[in-house]
Amino acid sequence: MKPIRLQIPTQEIRKPDIRKQSLAELTQFLQTQGEKSFRAKQIYQWIWQKSAHSFEQMSNLSQKLRDLLSQHYAFYPLAVAKTQQSEDGTIKSAFKLDGGHLVEGVLIPAPPRMTACISSQVGCSLSCKFCATGYMDKKRNIDAAEIYDQVVAIQRQAEAHFNLPLSNIVFMGMGEPLMNYQNVLKGIEMLTSPDGLNMSPKRITVSTAGIAKFIKKLGDDEVKFNLALSLHAANDEKRNQIMPINDSNNLAVLREALMYFYQKTKNRITYEYIMFDDFNDSLKDAEELFRFTKHTPCRVNIIEYNPISEAEFRKPSEARIDAFAAYLVKKGVMATVRRSRGKDIDAACGQLANKG
């Protein structure tokens, strides 16, 4: 009787992500394979300047080298799973990441300005009461290449739909960017580097709910991009009610961190202030906001509240919003009321939650 041989399925080995290799690591790999070192720079340019997603696109490399790369590495790009266009032209995209998770990004057109609003995490752990993403569990951080891919995808939408280049990037989508510090900074490096997309860091804004130690770290790293604080109340009691992060990062701690950031970078701070009816919209609230913001050069963006099903906040009247803004302007604050875009497709500030 012949012995029975069991066929044990072999699990396919996942190849390393080529986009997680540094230029030095690529150079070393090529040297061990007997290839010229300068080819690493060419590969890097294909990845980060030309946004290649396959080795076959690298037309100035020999077929032998392309085959070698495909044997050892792979690409794991995000894909545009779905898009929706608002009546005002705003385009929301659902991006499918490696592993199947979905995140959302938005193109906000205001010609000639084209702004990409991108995500930094799948879900969020900070549980802000007015934000749809805050009611989702955090699944994982978004890596640097996926941050880069969101920008490239939205840039292509701007060119295809409006025949205009992308002008600005805001990290105001899903997640808390400073809780994904290394990937966000690496992603911005590849967006701004001459070896990448060579965009100006002054056109990039990172928005945080307020994590003091990382705000200080941004200062120590002397970042060139803009910093925005999602403030929404300049009163600890009120901010605690809507933003649990304030329990461990109260206003006094944040003020010190922001002053440190400004001292290190000389970058003006942006404060984001969503107005909620009969909560943070009085002239007393405006005075508290003025007092909090007066310690460094800044601007204040007053944002209309966009309703979500999970919360019962309401938007104040236009008259109340305008009076609040006028009070700040009279005090010498650079304050602007930002009207929301994309509300009809749940693409406005605070509404991103993968609802399709």
Results as ranks from 00 to 15, higher is better:
Glu189Ser: 04
Asn354Ala: 12
Lys217Phe: 04
Phe130Ser: 01
Arg140Ser: 11
Ala40Glu: 03
Ala81Gly: 00
Arg255Val: 10
Phe313Glu: 00
Leu68Ala: 09
Val253Gln: 13
Ser230Gly: 06
Glu237Ala: 14
Ala335Cys: 14
Thr27Lys: 14
Lys138Val: 13
Lys216Pro: 01
Pro111Phe: 07
Val152Cys: 08
Lys41Val: 10
Thr270Gly: 05
Gly89Asn: 01
Gln121Ile: 14
Lys92Cys: 03
Glu222His: 15
Val333Asp: 05
Glu104Ser: 07
Ala40Thr: 11
Lys82Ala: 06
Leu231Asn: 01
Leu197Tyr: 01
Ala325Gln: 11
Ser167Met: 09
Glu288Tyr: 13
Leu78Pro: 04
Lys343Ala: 05
Ile43Cys: 06
Ser22Leu: 04
Pro3Cys: 12
Asn163Lys: 10
Ala209Tyr: 04
Glu189Trp: 04
Ala257Lys: 03
Asp281Ile: 08
Lys217Arg: 07
Thr83Ile: 01
Trp48Ala: 12
Gln28Val: 04
Leu254Gly: 04
Ala228Met: 11
Asn280Leu: 03
Glu146Ser: 13
Ala153Trp: 02
Ala94Glu: 05
Lys217Tyr: 05
Ile302Gln: 08
Leu68Met: 12
Lys213Gly: 00
Ala252Met: 07
Arg341Trp: 13
Asn198Phe: 12
Arg140Val: 08
Asn306Ile: 07
Ser125Trp: 03
Cys117His: 06
Pro16Val: 11
Arg140Tyr: 12
Arg339Trp: 15
Gly175Tyr: 05
Arg299Lys: 15
Ile211Trp: 02
Glu288Asn: 15
Gln351Leu: 00
Asp143Arg: 02
Leu185Gly: 06
Thr265Asn: 02
Tyr262Asn: 08
Ile47Ala: 13
Arg255Leu: 10
Gly34Ile: 10
Phe95Ala: 03
Tyr135Val: 02
Pro297Ile: 04
Asn280Met: 02
Glu25Ser: 15
Gln11Gly: 05
Val106Thr: 07
Tyr73Ala: 08
Pro244Asn: 06
Ala348Trp: 00
Ala110Pro: 00
Ile169Lys: 01
Asn267Gly: 05
Met136Lys: 06
Phe130Gly: 02
Tyr148Ile: 02
Ser22Met: 08
Arg341Glu: 13
Met179Ile: 12
Ser59His: 06
Lys15Glu: 06
Gly196Glu: 10
Ile8Asn: 10
Gln157Asn: 06
Arg255Asp: 14
Ser119Arg: 11
Arg299Tyr: 02
Ser22Glu: 08
Ser230Arg: 01
Val106Asn: 09
Asp344Met: 00
Leu229Pro: 00
Glu104Tyr: 12
Val329Ala: 12
Ser59Trp: 05
Ala325Arg: 12
Gln63Cys: 08
Val170Cys: 10
His161Arg: 11
Phe38Arg: 02
Glu87Met: 11
Ile118Pro: 01
Glu146Asn: 13
Tyr260Ala: 07
Phe171Ser: 05
Trp48Gly: 10
Tyr76Lys: 04
Arg299Ile: 01
Gly105Pro: 04
Arg113Trp: 10
Ala94Lys: 06
Ala79Val: 07
Gly34Pro: 05
Cys298Ala: 15
Ile303Pro: 07
Glu222Arg: 15
